[in-house]
Every structure is written in C-alpha cells, then in structure tokens.
Design a binder for these strands. Structure first.
Lengths: 324, 324
DNA sequence: GTGAAAGCGCTAACAC
DNA sequence: GTGTTAGCGCTTTCAC
C-alpha cells in the first residue's frame, strides 16, 4: 500500500541503507545520489513508518501530555483540552499521536520513570509542572521533554508572558483611575502563580498603592470565595484583577448578587480570554493566552528535536471590554 | 529497560511464540503453561511494545479523530477539544496516541484513502460526518472506524440523544407558558441538525403551535444573526430554543441590546451546557451533552475492537437555570 | 560513497 | 501443545 524505503531505494537505483542515509540527512552520499533519492521519495509520496523507526531507535511514537496536579481532576479543564488539541494536531503531521495523562505530584518520580521506560513514548510535554517534579525527571527523558510553564536545565520552557500581562493590566486599571486594586492569584503550588504576583507587587509598590493579594484556584468557585474575602478584608477596593477568566466571572457573580456595580463600583479584569468572556454581563476585560501557539511550539520542539532557548515567552494582549 | 516477550518466555521456560499465544489469548496452550506465562508476565511487569506489534500486524498505533467540515476552522471548537482530550486519555491506557485532523468534505475520498493506507493509523473516530463521507469510506477502514454522529453499516454511531433533549426542552418551555417557540438549528449540512428539527416540529404540531425555524451555525455570531431574524419575522415570539449554548448566548446578547427581558419577554434555552453557561446574565437554561463519555466510549470501541450496536444514544439532561 | 547484513520486539505460519 | 522460522520497515555498524 504505502511505499516503503525499499521502494524508494529501488526507484532511485540505490540500496536501502543509502536511501535511509540520504533521507535521514546524516552519513555521506554523492550529490547525484542524494538528488535521485529525494526525487524518488517525493514522487512516490514516501513517508517513513514511525512504528518501524520507533522499533529500531527505541524512541517511541506518541507524545505524552503530562499534567501535573494533586488529583486526576486537573485533566478536566478547558486549558488542558486546548493543549491536547494543539498537540494532537501538530502530531498528526508527523504520524505521531498525543496521549494525555495525569502526573500525580506526590508520586511523580514513579510515574516519570514509567514514562521513561515506556518504549511507546517519544517525548513529553509537561503542563503546570513544579520544581519538585522537574528534579525527579529521569536523565533518559532529558532532550525529549519540554515544559509549558517553568523550565529546567535541559527542559526548555514555553510560556505566556503573564508577568508582562499583569503589569499591563495593572497599568490599565491605574490609568482608568483605580487605586485600590486587589489581585486574585492562582494556587500557591503552581509555579505560574509567582510571576504575576511579583509583577503586581512591583507595580503597586512603584505607584505607592496598597498590596491586596488573595489566593484563588483558577476556578469560578474559587473566584467567588476570593471576591468575598476581598470584600471582607478591604471593603474600599475599587478593582480586582483575577488571574483567570473563570475566577473573574465568579467574582462578578458575587458582586452582582451584592448589588455592586461592575465596573462602576469595582472594576474586574480576568486573564485567558476564554471563548465566552465576551458574552457575560458586563463583557469581561481580560488578556489573551495563546495556548494553542504555545502548545504547538512545544510539541514541535520535541518532535523536531530542535534546540530551544531555556525560555520562550509568548506575549499576551489586553482585551478591553466592559468590566474594567 | 522494559521487559520483552523474550524475557517473559525465558522466565516461564517456554518459547517466545508460546508466550505470545498465551498473552494474545488465541492458539492452544496447556493450563499449566498458561499459568506460568501469565505469572511471569505480571511479575516482570510485561507490556507488549505497540510499535513492534504495529509493525508486524500493520495495524497502527494512533487513533485519528477526523472532523468533517468545509474548512480547517471546524477544528477550532471547544467541542472538538473535548473529543480529542477524551480520546487522548483513553488512548494513554493502551499506549495509543490520538491525532487530530480535518476531513475536508469535498475531498473526503482522497483523505480517507490516505488514512486507510497510513500504516501508523490504527483506527478513526469520525466527528460530524455526513452520509457522503461515509459512502466514501474505504472497505479497509470498516471495523476500525466509529462515528460520533450518524452511523453507517459497519460504522457504529455514538451520539447524544438530541431528539429527546429537544422534546424535553420544548415541553419545559410549554409547561412554563410559552406558546410561540422558535428554534435556531445547526447548519443544514450537518446531519446532527435533523433530529432536533424533527423533534421540534413533532412537538409543535402535536401542541397545535406554529413552527418557527431559523438556521444557525452553532456559533455565537450565528446565534445573534438568527435572533435578529426571529425578531424580524415573528415579533411576538416568546421563547427561543437554540441548539447550542454559543448560539443561545449570542441570542441573549441581541435581546439585551434591544432591551428585551430574558426570560421575562422571551425565554432562551441552549444546548451543550458549556462551562460558563451558568455565569451569564441570566444564567442559561440548557441541556447537558456528555461529550467526554461519548468520545471515551467511541475510542474504547475501536481500541478494543468490540462489536457495537449500530447506534448508542447517550441521554441528555435538562439544566434549569434562569433564562428559560 | 555505497551496499550487505544484522536486528529492534513482535506475530503468525508451519512443522513437530 | 509447543518450538522453529520468517519477516514487518527501518536504522546502523561494518566491509568494500
């Protein structure tokens, strides 16, 4: 059915090994041979069988998206969906599939070793990883693992510039006259929580404004709880920056139920720009999160085995709507 | 690293083929041998290498989620994300990855043949497929293809019972006093559009109410356009059932901008129960869509090669909120 | 610069 | 019932 390397070699009048070398792009080959093999390959529409290749190289044929978390519920998240989708889409172009699995925070070493020993796995994309997990990374995985989140020596990081987004958002709130700006953060164990906090604190201190930090968990329920907390501790708050749209929507729900006007009394800004941020009342002011671009780049890096700088930051853009 | 069949065979004191037969569960084997091989396999933690198996059986090692549509934008949809995620999660348990690709409606035969000839593909899950596409299905794919949507001889269907959901929703609207109920449908080319229409028409005719059908496209923008259309053609409409939450939210946005009360003047119901259906104002009354369960069952069916009835319908449940 | 040959881990004839 | 054997398509020494 599909042409094999043998077919290409025969068509080009060379041996299988020569064809393999040319197509693999290593070993020696005369320019002429090179040309003939390439031509034959494209003419026949040759694509190497990843299974056969995996068998001999022992490198595997599926890319695992491993989401770090305390329980399997971390997989049940539209953010994860977007990462997996982008990975599956990129993989399709390489004949590589995407697998999704939970990487339990407390038994990360075990699971990572199993992953490293699994011949079917060609690489992994870590999501929401922590330093502890990265420290437990088996050496044999280095070079075929990337991280959407914080990096590690040998593990390039792909992430949104959420520090920059935070600065920009605080500046926007300040410019629109807000002075008592609270921030709802992500859960403390997630490393992606820190940079926005730093950026927020820096901005507030620089402007001589009070720092009002409340922990959240990226969910709407968490946003509701955090908003109640803010109202309780600092009743004069005039703006809230929630580091996820879900939390921002939860916060707005609380304010609405209290009869507090948004953005009249309190401005609320989110982060992520989820599909329906624009359909709430009021429409949510937020910052974009190019998850698909990030995940696609991450997947491509491990599939192409390209060298990557330790950190690649993707810019986030403010989306001005009604809530702030 | 990982134990091979050879290791198991040696540990059990049998040949590789015997071990293979036992573990594969076909061919003959004495109860004693069977026992020893099984014991050795579990003791060593043996798992067959899907790459090697794929190579010899020619059955492939990745499950393709093929989304039928007019253009690649059909992939860019939270619904697709959920299907892919569930597939990737089920696949992970089998050492199988999920790939995502667009199945262009106008060149379906070509793409399907490529899929059939691709040695890396073990099966496919069709999404939003049409009869025309199913008709073009190569024979070699039969038995390893399932459909989330309409089925076909040899292609079992897994779908939500959207006809039942429609009936239930119309009944709910009727029970709450609505009599001039319009329905916003999906795009005509999608087969999943028909059953809700039939159910709606049957319900309306049975109740002696006027049929008011407007085509949509499952997007919020389509919902806005459809709502304008309804208002234009039947100004006395008192309820709208949109067959997707996105369209319902679009419809609500239009009504809000016109100063029309929801549900006071016009009730609006959606379908899907997307994560933030509950955060709009008013919170959206809708019907659940167990996409993950459906996709997981579909993926499992092709991976396990189990026989399936031609159609498996998954119940949808009404979620009563504020909008209807 | 090129080809012959071995072998990755597994399945499936086929002989015993 | 069981073992022997021949590959699946590819990469990779190692001679030439």
């Amino acid at each position: 059915m599909a042409p094999t390397l043998e077919d290409v070699a025969r068509a080009a009048g060379v041996s299988r090994s020569t064809a393999s070398r040319v197509l693999g792009g290593y070993g020696p080959a005369s320019p002429d041979t090179r040309e003939r093999v390439r031509a034959a390959a494209t003419r026949l529409g040759y694509a190497p069988d990843p299974a056969a290749r995996a068998l001999v190289t022992g490198k595997g044929y599926r890319l695992v998206v491993a989401v770090v978390g305390l329980d399997p519920a971390v997989l049940d998240d539209p953010y994860v969906d977007r990462v997996v989708r982008a990975t599956a889409e990129v993989g399709a172009r390489y004949g590589i599939g995407a697998s999704l699995q939970w990487l339990p925070m407390d038994s990360a070493p075990t699971v990572l070793h199993r992953l490293a020993g699994d011949r079917s796995v060609c690489g992994a994309v870590l999501v929401n990883t922590t330093e502890a997990v990265l420290r437990a990374l088996p050496r044999s995985l280095i070079g075929r693992v990337v991280s959407i989140g914080i990096g590690w020596p040998g593990v390039p990081s792909f992430d949104v510039d959420n520090g920059g987004a935070t600065s920009a958002m605080i500046q926007h709130l300040y410019a629109s006259g807000r002075r008592r700006i609270a921030m709802v953060t992500g859960p403390a164990w997630m490393p992606c929580t820190q940079r926005p906090i730093d950026a927020y604190q820096a901005a507030m201190v620089a402007a001589g404004l009070p720092v009002r930090l409340v922990p959240g968990d990226f969910t709407a329920a968490g946003g509701r709880a955090a908003m109640l907390d803010v109202l309780d501790r600092w009743p004069d708050t005039d703006a809230v920056f929630a580091t996820s749209d879900a939390m921002a929507l939860g916060a707005i729900a609380v304010l609405r139920s209290r009869g507090i006007e948004v953005p009249g009394d309190i401005a609320v800004a989110g982060f992520d720009d989820i599909p329906f941020a624009s359909y709430g009342v009021p429409a949510l002011t937020t910052a974009t999160h190019p998850v698909e671009r990030i995940a696609a780049a991450a997947a491509t890096a491990v599939l192409e085995q390209t060298w990557m700088p330790p950190v690649t930051a993707y810019p986030s853009e403010l989306v001005y709507r009604e809530s702030a």
